[in-house]
Simulated scan of single mutants.
Amino acid sequence: MSHAQLLEREFEENLCAELAERGWLYEDDGKPMGWDVGLAMVPADALHWLATQYPDEYEKAVPGDLVGEQRAAAERKLLEHITKELAKATRMDPTTGHPVGGLLGVLRKGFSFAQIGRPAAKFGAMMEFPPANPNLTEVVEAADSVRLRILRQVRFDTKTNESIDIVLLANGLPVVTMELKTDNTQTVNHAIRQYKEDRKPGRSRPLLTPGRALVHFAVSNDLVYMTTKLQGGDTVFLPFNQGNHGHEGNPPSGTGSSTNYLWREILARPTFMRILKDFALFEPGKSGKKA
């Protein structure tokens, strides 16, 4: 392994370790065990959430009397249906103001799953968020049970072994991807170029399909850029920096990278859960910052 690769791996390990201290699951050093590259999710986490939060509906989708290959086939059908829901364009329900379809719709609203010869299962949201009223104990418990997971070096192409540095998931569904570069060897522009040139969406790359993750971060020790849609050379990255006394970039940090606010503050579990909840307040197709 080259010196540059060692530096980048150290950066990656430190970032993930600090996220783990802030409420994220980081098992076996983030090895992508359980990751299904074709479905672009961690099936065990997705099924666990549905089975524990909506047991009656889960029984309709995956009857308890199924075992072995039959049970595995029923679970696979359910998971494949979720990917179809995730592939839909998100729209806002004019009555409720909630997102319908796509990742945001699945996270906030849920989905229905119909099968021939069985009653339709109507699953609620794939996530629960901490309520403003802490006395709502059932909601608090559900929010606490959300599995926020870190995976490292995650395959994104069913035909190759290419991987993305970090993927962050909520109940098995990817919500954030990250490419990291250390400023001692490369700049954030190398990560941006990597997304544009080597991370183009395609049929064999479901993780990179527009809408399958909420945001993609290009991160170096000094700078952060982000995009919500990968589209090859047309991908638009925007700065996600704090500013430095009226200038671009970020102020120096006395305890590590200048960009550590990203994982120490923004991606820390409590803040990230609030951001994820508010994300659906933006109408699909529009951009801007919440006032």
Rank of each mutant, 00 (worst) to 15 (best):
Q231I: 07
Q231K: 08
G232D: 07
G232P: 05
G233M: 15
G233S: 15
D234C: 04
D234H: 03
D234N: 07
T235E: 05
T235C: 00
V236F: 03
V236L: 06
F237C: 08
F237W: 12
F237S: 09
L238S: 09
L238C: 03
L238Q: 11
P239W: 11
P239K: 09
F240L: 05
F240M: 08
N241M: 14
N241V: 13
N241E: 15
N241H: 10
N241F: 00
Q242F: 14
G243T: 10
N244P: 03
N244H: 07
N244I: 07
N244L: 11
G246S: 05
G246N: 05
G246T: 07
H247W: 00
H247Y: 02
H247F: 00
E248Q: 14
E248W: 00
G249Q: 08
G249E: 10
G249R: 04
G249S: 10
N250L: 02
N250E: 07
P251S: 14
P251R: 14
P251W: 15
P252E: 09
P252K: 08
G254C: 05
G254Y: 01
T255L: 05
G256M: 04
G256S: 03
G256P: 06
G256K: 03
S257R: 13
S257V: 04
S257I: 00
S258E: 08
S258D: 11
T259Y: 01
T259W: 01
T259V: 01
T259C: 01
T259K: 00
N260Y: 06
N260I: 00
Y261A: 02
Y261N: 03
Y261H: 03
L262H: 13
L262R: 13
L262A: 15
W263R: 02
W263P: 05
W263N: 04
W263Y: 13
R264F: 10
E265M: 12
E265F: 14
I266M: 12
I266N: 13
I266W: 14
I266Q: 13
L267P: 09
L267K: 08
A268H: 12
A268P: 13
A268V: 11
R269D: 09
R269G: 09
R269E: 12
P270C: 00
P270I: 05
P270H: 01
P270F: 02
F272P: 03
F272S: 04
M273P: 02
M273W: 01
